[in-house]
Simulated assay, not measured.
Amino acid sequence: MGTHQDKRLMLEAEIPAFVDDVIATGCDICAIGHDGYVVGDAELSDEEYEIAGPKLARIKERYGDRDHLLREIAIYLCSLGRHHNPGSPPVN
């Protein structure tokens, strides 16, 4: 029986590969403010999600828990120009 301590924690050094892997699924990944990020899988068509969904599940399993790196992931995404600041007008 596994415990919470058995859960793999993503390493900060893995952030660039994690972001690249998410982008490769066809999903957008974007920092929200300076403390979090979102994966834009909701914008995919049903057919695209059927392909991306299992890939995202494998990414989640491969990298493990990322909650402790939310700020670091957001900072990395901002450095790539992948960010949205709450309160700013939407980009069309």
Rank of each mutant, 00 (worst) to 15 (best):
26 G>N: 03
83 H>N: 09
87 G>V: 00
84 H>M: 11
47 E>Y: 03
64 G>F: 09
59 I>F: 05
30 C>H: 00
14 E>L: 10
44 L>S: 04
10 M>A: 13
69 L>R: 08
73 I>P: 01
76 Y>W: 08
82 R>M: 14
26 G>K: 06
50 E>L: 10
51 I>Q: 08
34 H>Q: 14
33 G>K: 00
3 T>L: 13
9 L>E: 12
44 L>D: 01
36 G>A: 10
92 N>W: 09
89 P>M: 13
28 D>K: 09
31 A>C: 09
22 V>S: 06
3 T>I: 08
8 R>D: 08
18 F>Q: 04
17 A>W: 00
90 P>W: 03
44 L>P: 04
13 A>Q: 12
32 I>S: 06
58 R>S: 14
34 H>K: 13
14 E>Q: 11
18 F>E: 06
85 N>H: 12
7 K>H: 10
25 T>P: 04
13 A>D: 05
29 I>H: 06
76 Y>A: 06
37 Y>E: 09
28 D>E: 09
39 V>Q: 09
26 G>S: 06
37 Y>K: 02
42 A>N: 03
20 D>A: 15
84 H>L: 09
48 E>H: 00
67 D>F: 15
84 H>V: 12
79 S>P: 05
68 H>R: 06
15 I>G: 05
32 I>N: 04
53 G>P: 02
6 D>R: 05
4 H>G: 14
22 V>E: 04
34 H>N: 12
42 A>E: 14
77 L>M: 07
79 S>W: 04
54 P>S: 10
56 L>T: 04
37 Y>Q: 03
56 L>A: 02
31 A>V: 10
72 E>A: 15
57 A>D: 15
65 D>I: 06
31 A>H: 03
24 A>D: 02
77 L>P: 00
61 E>Q: 08
